[in-house]
Amino acid sequence: MERPLTQRIFAAVAGWGLAIIMFFPILWMAMTAFKREPEAIASPPLIFFEPTLRNFEQVLDRADYLHFFFNSVIVSVGSTLLGLAVGLPAAYALAFHPGKRAKDLLVWMLSTKMMPAVGVLVPIYLMFKSAGLLDSRIGLVVLYMLVNLPIIIWMLFTFFREVPREILEAARLDGARPLRQFIHLLIPLTAPGIASTALLSIILAWNEAFWSINLTVSNATPLTAFIASFSSPQGLFWAKLSAASLLAIGPILVFGWITQRQLVRGLTFGAVK
């Protein structure tokens, strides 16, 4: 049924209006990243200006920016790979060979995610300190893996559960052993699901800011904590701040957009699909 024209115009105006308001701070940051420093703080604010790449050159010229960027890559990808290695077998077992306690186990895993980070800040800080893990990448990799493991297992579990039983049943009758089933059938069948699980884990680790600020000093500092150092009031370098920020959020924003439909289930533990 075709709606009247006025209603369709209203729908477009409302949808686009809200979208532009929500996106505006990012857009404004992206514009500022291409301004010169005096233009960035000019009043009235400049909407039209001659874009320059100078901020990006200066940010990237500082060798340490790449250092922080690679820390973010290592920490988020490392913790995700480790999380998948540990979580894939567990999700497989829970989805296809559930024992009596499978449900309790899942619920318990979920409940470990409810621990507020700040509640265990003191012991984790002291344990890291005595183990020499403060400001180390390996410490963050392990920590982020533990933080995201329940989400990884749950999300994989919901994808595995959707695999039609008949397919696996047929494979079994053909004599495929569980490991063969897993590698040759299940992994290809659920590849999109596994990929979105990995992306969500990377996104969450990349954007994590509590542990990275409190447990790193410089050697292992990822971008979240590095950007926080711009908050000290030593002059207004807004254009460089914006360029550094744009580089920091760019890749993750694209990941988020790619996987937006699947990550709802990961974020809600399968409660909303």
Binding site: L18, A19, I20, M22, F23, P25, I26, W28, M29, I203, W206, N207, A209, I213, L223, T224, A225, I227, A228, F230, S231, L241, S242, S245, A248, I249, I252, L253, F255, G256, W257, Q260
Partner: peptide
Amino acid sequence: LCIAPFFVMPTVSALI
């Protein structure tokens, strides 16, 4: 555009 802010790291959004 609407969902983009969710993927911005907290320190960046706070400083913007």
